[in-house]
Computed example of a mutant assay.
Amino acid sequence: MNKSVFFGALTVAGLAAGAAAASTLDDVKARGKLNCGVTTGLAGFAAPNANGEWEGFDVAVCRAVAAAVLGDPAAVEFIPTTGKTRFTALASGEIDFLARNTTWTFSRDVDLKFDFIGVNYYDGQGFMVPKELGVSSAKDLDGATVCIQTGTTTELNLADFFRNNNISYEPVPVETNAEGQQQYLAGACDTYTTDASGLAATRATFENPGEHIILPEIISKEPLGPLVRHGDNDWGDVTRWVLYALIAAEELGVTSANVEEMTTNTTNPEVARLLGTEGTLGEMLGLEADWAKKAIASQGNYGEIFAKNIGEETPIGLARGLNAQWTDGGLMYAPPFR
C-alpha cells in the first residue's frame, strides 16, 4: 500500500545511480547489519511489538535476508519510511532493502531505477466503511469524503475509479496509516481506501472491528514486493533468491521444524540443492552453502510466515487466495533451484 508515484523521479533516479556503484552485498557484510526500510507501522506486516521488536510479514523477509547473508536474523536495523520518503531512502543508500508493502509498477521499475525482486503479496485496492453508513458497494460512495495516503498509487486508482463510474469524492489526505486510521475513526472521512490487506490489518486493531466492513469491490492490481536499487545485480540476486527460497521451501515441504532433518535425510535433489548439501548455489551468490537453510530455519517457509503474521488464525484474518502456492491454484511460484 502507500505506493508513491513519480515523486521526485529525477532526484531519486540520480541518487540510485550513485548509491548502486558500490556493492551492497559487500557493504552489508562489512557493516554486519542489514538496513531494511519498512512501514511506519501496519499490524501483521511491520510494526514494533510490546517489547519494541519489529515483527510482521514484511519484517520476516528482512530477517530472512539477514540470516542468509550474515547468519543472524537479528542483525537488522529497521528504518520506518512513509509513502513519500521510502524511495529516497533506498536511492540514497540510507537503506539496503525496502520491504514495505510497495506496489510493483512500470514507473517505479523503469523511471525511479529500482528492481523489484519478486512479489510476496498479491493484493488489490479496496474500501472500508462504517456499517452504520449503510453502504454495500463502492459505487454508492458518490460525494463521499475519502481518507487516502499521499504519494501513493492509491491516489491514482481512486481518481480513475470515481471518474470511470461518473461519481465524485472529496479526498482527505493523510501521511501514514496511523493517521488514516485516526481520521477515519474520528469521522473525518466516510471511507478509508488502501490495499485490501492493509484495510484488514487496520480493522483488526479497532476496538470494535465488527462495526466496519470492507466493500466487495477490488479496483486495482497491487503486486506488493521488496525492492533494491538498479545496477547492483549481485545484491538483487541475493535478495531475490532468499524470497524464492522461502516460497520454494513451502512447495517442497521444508519447514522451520523439519529443516535440520531434511538437510541430512532428503532424497529430493532440489531440496538438497536448496539446503546446500549438494551443488554450489551458495558459492554462486557469494554466500555460505547453507544460506537458504538459515533463512528458512529462522523465519519458516512462506506459508509459515503468512500463517503466523496475517493468516486466517490471526486477528488480520487473511485467506491465502492468490497468495496460495501455484499447486493450490494461487500465484506463488518459485523458479527451479538448479
Rank of each mutant, 00 (worst) to 15 (best):
L158P: 08
Q182F: 05
N166L: 11
A196R: 13
Y184G: 02
P171E: 05
A201H: 09
Y192C: 01
A201M: 12
L185T: 07
V172A: 07
L199V: 05
Y169D: 03
G198E: 05
A186M: 01
N165E: 07
Q182R: 15
F206C: 05
G198V: 04
A186I: 00
N166K: 15
D195K: 04
A204P: 04
A178E: 06
A178G: 07
I167K: 13
A201L: 09
G198W: 02
G187M: 10
L199Q: 03
E211D: 15
R163H: 14
N166G: 06
I214D: 08
G180L: 04
T191F: 08
T202G: 12
E155P: 00
N208I: 01
T194D: 13
E179P: 02
D195W: 06
E170Y: 10
L158Q: 10
C189K: 02
T193C: 07
A201G: 14
Y169R: 06
A159T: 15
Y169A: 07
A186T: 00
F161M: 06
T154N: 12
H212E: 02
D160G: 12
S168T: 14
N208D: 13
A178I: 01
G180H: 05
T194Y: 04
T176S: 10
G187K: 12
Y192F: 15
E179G: 10
F206A: 04
E211V: 01
D160F: 10
E211R: 08
P209M: 09
E211I: 01
P173T: 10
A178M: 03
P209D: 08
A159G: 14
I214F: 10
E211Y: 00
N165H: 15
E207Y: 00
T191H: 05
A178V: 01
C189A: 14
N166R: 14
I213S: 09
F162S: 07
S197P: 07
F161R: 06
Q183W: 06
F162L: 07
N166C: 02
D190V: 04
E170S: 12
A186P: 00
T194R: 03
T176N: 05
V174I: 14
T193V: 09
G198F: 02
E179W: 08
Q182A: 12
L156F: 12
Q183G: 01
N208R: 11
Q183R: 13
A196V: 14
T154S: 10
E175L: 09
E170W: 02
L185D: 03
D160H: 14
T202R: 09
N165K: 07
Y192L: 14
E155G: 01
R203C: 07
S168H: 10
Q183P: 00
A159P: 10
D160C: 06
Y184Q: 04
L199I: 05
G198C: 04
S168M: 09
F206Y: 14
Q181S: 12
E175V: 11
N164A: 15
G198R: 02
G198N: 04
I167C: 12
T176H: 09
N157R: 13
L156W: 10
Q183M: 11
G187F: 09
E170H: 08
L185V: 08
I167E: 12
A204Q: 12
F162Q: 04
N177Y: 15
N177W: 14
Y169I: 04
